[in-house]
């Protein structure tokens, strides 16, 4: 059965990072997978920049026309409609950041409504600016939700400082996301991070200091999107 996941959240929250990881693990388990890059507002840092990685792994990528050409006004191809009815088993939508970025999703409201298996995940990186306080996150989440015309089904804790991430960053995110979940009644779907960080988190879980409700599934990721200094010099912006 078709399983569709929509990833929304603030700029730099880790939507594309999660999308790539989900897509790669989906094809590994033998599922026909498509990724839809539906970001119309940011000319940089889109999942389509990893087009060859996705396609080499047998993942289909649909992306806005003129994306990655340096042109700033891109447009969504009609092909996007096909993912609602074709035989792809895993469909991942990677939206643009903030409420403006989520607007592009709104046009598919009727199509999303017909899906029997739909996850809408809201990704939070508590170490990003304007994302470290409960109220800021809830205000933003409400706006993104309404411009996407979708209800968020799960929160994702992706609190990190890129290569400098430590367990205390993820624990900061745990605390933050637990309050957000309490106030919004949205469950926590997953906590993502690199394997070593999640191993450390597991120790906290084992000794009972953390509440499983605020962790969800532990989702180990590899970093494909984030550009540290060295990759920047080779790949540009």
């Amino acid at each position: 059965m078709k399983h569709t996941t929509v990833l929304i959240g603030n700029f730099g929250s880790g939507k594309s990072e999660l999308a790539i990881n989900m897509a790669l693990s989906s094809v590994k388990s033998g599922k026909k997978t498509v990724v839809v890059d539906i970001d119309l507002i940011n000319p940089y840092f889109r999942i389509s920049e990893r087009k060859s990685l996705l396609e080499e792994n047998g993942i289909k990528l649909i992306y806005p026309r003129y994306a990655m050409t340096g042109v700033e006004a891109t447009s969504i191809p009609p092909e996007v409609y096909s993912v609602f009815i074709d035989d792809h088993e895993t469909v991942i939508f990677d939206a643009g950041g903030d409420p403006t970025g989520a607007i592009a999703l709104g046009q598919y409201r009727a199509n999303f409504a017909e899906l029997s298996r739909l996850d809408v995940f809201y990704i939070i990186n508590g170490r990003r600016p304007l994302s470290s306080e409960v109220d800021q996150n809830i205000a933003l989440l409400d706006k993104i939700q309404s411009s996407a015309r979708l209800s968020i089904t799960g929160l994702v804790n992706n609190t990190n400082l890129a290569h400098e991430t430590g367990i205390f960053d993820l624990l900061f995110g745990y605390d933050l996301i637990s309050h957000i979940s309490e106030q919004t009644d949205i469950p926590i779907a997953m906590t993502m991070g690199t394997a070593p960080i999640l191993d450390e988190l597991s120790k906290y879980i084992e000794n009972g200091t953390l509440d499983q409700r605020y962790i969800g599934k532990l989702y180990p990721i590899k970093r494909y999107m984030h550009r540290d200094w060295d990759t920047f010099t080779h790949l540009g912006i």
Partner: peptide, 10 residues
């Protein structure tokens, strides 16, 4: 103050 992950512009 805790570190943040920020773009240069921000």
């Amino acid at each position: 103050m805790a570190k943040k992950l920020m773009k240069g512009c921000e």
